[in-house]
Amino acid sequence: MLRVSKEPSDTTRTGPRSLHPRGGELIDATAERTSAPVVGDNRTEPERDDGGSMPTPPPVSVLPVASPQPMNGAPHDPRRSDVDEWGRSENMRSILRRVYDPVYRYWFRVEWEGLEKIPHHGGALLIANHAGAIPSDAPAIMHGIEEELGRPVYGLADYFFRTIPVVGTMWSRTGGVPAHPDNAYRLLHDQQQLALVFPEGTKATSKTYTDRYRLRRFGRGGFVEIAMRAGVPVIPIAVVGAEESMPILFRIGGLAKALKLPYFPVTANALLMGPIGYVTYFPVKIKLRVLDPVTFDIEPGLERYSRSRVMDEAETIRAKMQDSLHDMLRERRSIWFG
């Protein structure tokens, strides 16, 4: 098995890089700064790219103020920010990548295995096991893929994030998308992007330390159905380390209800460090193993898929991930050093 190691010593960085939200190619950040601040055409939706084949209707009566609109082709789009239709901003993302990179390299010392299985082009649904009171796996996966493959990853997550002021906006600007089936389909099928989803949902992040590395139920298998409909592969990623980065000792149900949170965890970090513990992870070693992509030999684009087939596929993927986790844990000699 090929290993893509991400040790600080063997990686030479060429300088600040950033990615185009659509193009998926690496460009130099300085070059981007010198280019025009507003680039309109990579944001127009594909279905709106009307080639001008239809006859343009004659102008309607226009009141005094004249408009500068061109009569043919796509209308002029005077955007000022680079926030795309999902709320993701490549500028924000690249700032975050710069800030997060030391955490990724020196704190978690993230190590990938099988990263080459994630395609450079085309849509794919990435799924992973989820852990930690405030999960440390999602940023690590998104950061790693964006840095290595130079293409954006959209993280599908609970609507709950959207309701929190500031956090919701930051989450959206840095690639978070509400996990609605329509959103997933549009990302995967229409735009051929990479989307990351945690099928266990909050059932995984709220579990206590005693249940670590035991995969929860994979929802209702919705992720399989979406991948089938969009005609893209599911690529499972097994994560080891995130469980120990912020383990939950117990939960306070009443407090969660009072604060309208999905759960209120008391973490080992918080017991050791106090309130700071809620924003500080233990320096565990995170290892990520990309499993073989799962493709479904089934016609895409259907309204509905056989429930039993969907549940079977989901269960197969879950079993594979569970095996993989056990395998990785057998190889692991230390929580801190891998």
Binding site: D50, P75, H76, D77, R80
Partner: peptide
Amino acid sequence: FQYRYTSAG
């Protein structure tokens, strides 16, 4: 139908 303006437009 062809639009003359985008949202930002």
